[in-house]
Simulated assay, not measured.
Amino acid sequence: MLAGGRAPMIRAAGAIADGLMGMPLCSPAFVEEVIRPMLADAADRAGREQPVPITGMTICAVSENSTQARALAATQLAVFAAGASAAPLIAFHGFEAEVAGDPRGVRAGRHPGRGGRRLGPDARHAGRPRNTEGGMGFHGTPKEAWERFAATFEGVYDEPLLFTAGKGMPKGGFEESLLGVCEAFGM
């Protein structure tokens, strides 16, 4: 299995790998309109007959407080949107101006986990795609998170991989989100 989010690695996975591990910042539309066709084309050129399966990492944040979960998911979106590997996805959805206009420094790496300052409540919404409902992640209480996942990501990936991270989370937030994911998805 190869990991990738940009064209060269996606094409390489289509040509030679037994699967693609997608980046955490992918929407169902991007998977269906960009990644799957690119994988299929590369597989066809390599003479492969079987489709290349995709394991998709999906950003999720779960909390008993839905507003807090949304803010946590949005922070993760900001972290991944700032990376160069997300550029094709950001362009696909037309979010270039939001990511480029990041006055709080997420693109410059000034966020928790990279030795920068802590993002305050106002900074948590700077420089990122508008929301997680757009299909680049999901959030909510355990019940809401399950419903959002099922409505948005069910059937998108051959193997979904739920991704929650500690960057930007308040003390105890990562553990709460991880336990919420386990509750929501019966793990």
Rank of each mutant, 00 (worst) to 15 (best):
R114K: 11
P28H: 10
F174I: 03
C26Q: 14
G134F: 02
G166D: 10
L2Q: 12
S66K: 13
L72P: 01
F92K: 10
M136N: 09
G113D: 09
R36W: 10
D158E: 09
T141W: 03
F95C: 07
M57W: 08
D158R: 10
G94F: 02
P8E: 06
V156Y: 01
E33Y: 02
V52P: 07
A73F: 07
T55C: 11
G5W: 04
A81E: 09
L161Y: 00
A3Y: 12
I59V: 15
N131I: 01
E176K: 09
A3L: 11
E133V: 15
P142S: 01
T67D: 14
R118Q: 00
E33V: 11
A71R: 10
E176A: 13
G109W: 00
A82D: 07
E96T: 08
R114I: 13
A150I: 08
A82P: 02
A17I: 12
A123E: 14
P53Y: 00
T152I: 11
R36P: 13
E175A: 13
E175Q: 05
D41G: 11
F95V: 09
L72Y: 15
A69H: 06
G168M: 11
A29W: 00
F80C: 05
A73N: 01
C60K: 04
I16K: 13
F30G: 05
D158P: 02
R118S: 15
L2W: 13
G180I: 07
C26A: 13
S27I: 02
F92C: 08
P24A: 03
A7Q: 14
V79K: 07
T55L: 03
G168T: 06
R130G: 14
A97M: 09
A71P: 04
T75L: 13
R114C: 00
Q50L: 04
L20I: 10
S85D: 08
P112D: 08
A150N: 08
V181R: 01
G14I: 14
A71W: 07
D122A: 12
F138I: 03
P121H: 02
F138G: 00
F185V: 13
E32T: 15
F80N: 09
V106C: 05
I35G: 06
G127F: 02
G56T: 05
I16W: 14
R6G: 12
A184H: 02
E98I: 03
P142I: 03
F163C: 05
M23Q: 15
M1F: 06
C60Q: 03
V106S: 12
A40D: 09
L25C: 02
A184G: 00
R48H: 07
S63L: 04
G94V: 00
P129Y: 06
L179R: 15
R36G: 06
S27W: 06
W146E: 03
A46Q: 04
R70L: 07
A7V: 15
E159Q: 14
D102N: 11
C26I: 14
A69C: 03
P160I: 06
H139F: 07
I54L: 00
C60E: 01
